[in-house]
């Protein structure tokens, strides 16, 4: 289906893995050389120092908690907000895509709210929910919600009308068509939305933690800045990248399992 879109496309996993290792290795070498041999070394620490700091802090202490615990705090917030936000987003999106009246009511409102980035809600969330967990979860909810709704709506709208006719012909009721046809047919689109939603949620939790919190990866880099501890900032940033990368992989694997039917067997 996608043939011809990309000029070079390899399905060979080992080739891809080797390329990835070479690229990361080259980047680390460049970083090392830059910090060791140029004046860049005065501004940022080298990769070895950062990796050592991560190794020490992983189960040791950065502030009051280990890095693993900081990751845990951030993940907890993301998971709760993401779960609620994507559930509401998917439900609303599918309803908007399937029932014209729901789209007519909610879509204009939604189009205005959607371009507002979640971090713009930080002041309101603090006024409404205080400085605790609720405010952060609310922000992540917004991030997940706004990214899943439109994709789910597009999914519900793009269901092949002939497939709907087939279900009608086989005796499915309106409700059965929604649950057994529209919902599963939209799963690939829903996942496209969830992918964006999880990265957006991850970005949002860090922003929220940087504003006000006493733990989490966001706190770690802000605390590093306050203490002028460049190594702590960079270890936080590296951890943010790694966790974000893992989250994206988990989402892709989940999609592969749930959308097996969408890929050809060859």
């Amino acid at each position: 289906m996608k043939k011809g879109v990309l000029k070079y496309r390899t399905s060979d996993k080992t080739v891809n893995a080797v390329c990835a290792c070479i690229a990361i290795g080259l980047f680390l070498i460049l970083w090392y050389w830059g910090t060791a041999a140029t004046k860049l070394g005065m501004m940022i620490p080298g990769p070895i120092e950062v990796l050592q700091a991560i190794g020490r802090g992983l189960f040791g202490k950065v502030g009051r908690h280990s890095i693993i615990a900081h990751v845990g705090y951030s993940m907890m917030r993301v998971m709760v907000g993401f779960a609620i936000g994507s559930l509401v987003g998917v439900a609303l999106g599918l309803l908007m895509g399937w029932y014209g009246i729901a789209e007519a009511i909610f879509n204009p409102l939604f189009r205005i709210i959607r371009p507002i980035p979640p971090i713009a809600w930080i002041p309101i969330s603090i006024i409404w929910f205080g400085l605790g967990e609720d405010a952060k979860i609310f922000l992540i909810f917004l991030a997940a919600f706004s990214n899943t709704t439109l994709n789910s709506m597009a999914g519900a709208k793009s269901v092949d009308p002939e497939v709907i006719n087939a279900a009608k012909m086989l005796g499915a009721s309106e409700r059965q068509i929604f649950t057994t046809i529209v919902l599963p047919a939209s799963v690939p689109s829903i996942f496209a939305g969830l992918q964006v939603a999880i990265s957006s949620s991850w970005a949002t939790v860090l922003a929220a933690e940087m504003v006000r919190s006493s733990e989490g990866l966001g706190w770690m880099i802000v605390a590093g800045m306050n203490n002028n501890d460049m190594i702590q900032i960079l270890s936080g940033i590296v951890m943010i990248g790694i966790v974000g990368f893992i989250l994206a992989i988990i989402m892709r694997k989940a999609e592969e399992v749930l959308c097996r039917w969408n890929k050809s067997g060859e």
Partner: peptide, 29 residues
């Protein structure tokens, strides 16, 4: 109505269902 079965040129199968899932769909409903 289920008493008038249709076979489509495009097949209009439910791609997320197996052969069994497709064939038993009407009875399931």
């Amino acid at each position: 109505d289920p008493s008038r079965g249709v076979v489509f040129q495009s097949t209009a199968l439910f791609p997320w269902m197996t052969t069994m899932g497709n064939v038993e769909y009407g009875l399931k409903m």
